[in-house]
Amino acid sequence: MTSYRISQVAERCGLPATTLRFYEDQGLLAPRRTPSGYRLYGDETVERLKFIKAAKRVGLSLDDIREILPVWDHGGCPEVRDVLRPLIEARLADTDEHVGELRAFAAHLTRARQKLDAIAPGAGPCSSSCEFVDSEEPQLLQITDAPVGRPGPVEGGVRVACSLDGDGQAGRVEEWRRLLSETIDHVRLANGVRVSLPMHTAGRVAELAAAELQCCPFFEFSLQLGGERLHLEVRGPAEAAGLIEEYFVSP
């Protein structure tokens, strides 16, 4: 039987070693140990990690994956399909709900832009009588990874791990930094940060936040349109403070 050290498995699977240790803590992996305490993995671990990555790509939580793995270990494809299908149906329903929210928010932004475009060049000072200011209440869009009827992912003591590999995580940080280069201001919160951006960034912010939840479900995002700015709030457990600083505070 072929045996691999943790660094070798990490390289073969495109995952950081920290993620493998996290999966072990979560009961998804059970490596053997050498007499000196080093972790050893077999070919079956590589196959299991491929399955875990595939399940993460369709938005399944680690709790879902933990329940599926015994079926994957001992059953055939039909049995795995029967367990996976209702979970994916639930994710589809949740995604459809988010799509509806994003479309409504996009329509709200379009109306706001139309009101701004209608302001005459010689108009006086902006005040509460302005059609844009005195129109609709700000719309709030919450984006989380929690399926309907379940608690959100931001809770005390949540373990923090990103399922992206090293290159993928670096690329995601770069995407956020490009977007946040337009930051107007930011305020640090007790468990996160509030970033103000131009309104035209709303679509990209929502898209990137939804993508982020696929690999980092411990984040919680909210978008709010107020005045002429889009306000993005990012929150997470205490263990995510370093990631929030790295990802969302414009350098």
Rank of each mutant, 00 (worst) to 15 (best):
R32D: 10
R32I: 01
T34R: 04
T34G: 04
T34D: 11
P35Q: 08
G37S: 06
Y38W: 06
R39Q: 09
L40P: 01
Y41N: 00
D43Y: 00
D43F: 00
E44Q: 09
T45A: 14
L49A: 00
K50E: 07
I52D: 04
A54S: 15
A54P: 00
A55Q: 00
K56M: 04
R57P: 00
G59S: 02
G59L: 02
L60M: 08
S61L: 04
S61N: 10
L62V: 12
L62T: 08
L62I: 07
L62K: 02
I65M: 08
I65Y: 01
E67P: 02
E67I: 02
I68M: 14
I68G: 00
V71I: 14
V71L: 08
W72L: 03
W72I: 01
H74Y: 10
G75A: 14
G75D: 11
G76S: 14
C77F: 05
P78S: 14
E79S: 03
E79T: 00
E79Q: 05
V80D: 05
V80F: 04
D82K: 13
V83T: 14
V83Q: 13
L84Q: 08
R85N: 07
L87T: 05
E89H: 11
A90L: 06
A90T: 05
A90Y: 01
A90K: 11
A93R: 15
A93S: 11
A93M: 08
D94E: 10
D96W: 07
D96C: 04
E97H: 09
V99M: 10
V99F: 06
G100W: 14
L102H: 09
L102Y: 05
A104C: 03
F105A: 08
H108D: 12
H108P: 01
T110F: 13
T110I: 10
A112V: 13
A112E: 11
D117C: 02
A118H: 03
P121A: 06
G122N: 15
G122D: 15
G124Q: 09
P125L: 15
P125D: 14
C126V: 15
S127A: 12
S128H: 13
S128R: 12
S129Q: 14
E131L: 10
E131Y: 07
F132D: 10
F132T: 13
D134R: 13
E137M: 09
Q139C: 04
Q142Y: 11
Q142F: 07
T144D: 13
D145C: 14
A146F: 05
P147V: 03
P147D: 04
R150V: 13
R150G: 08
G152A: 07
P153D: 07
P153Q: 12
V154I: 07
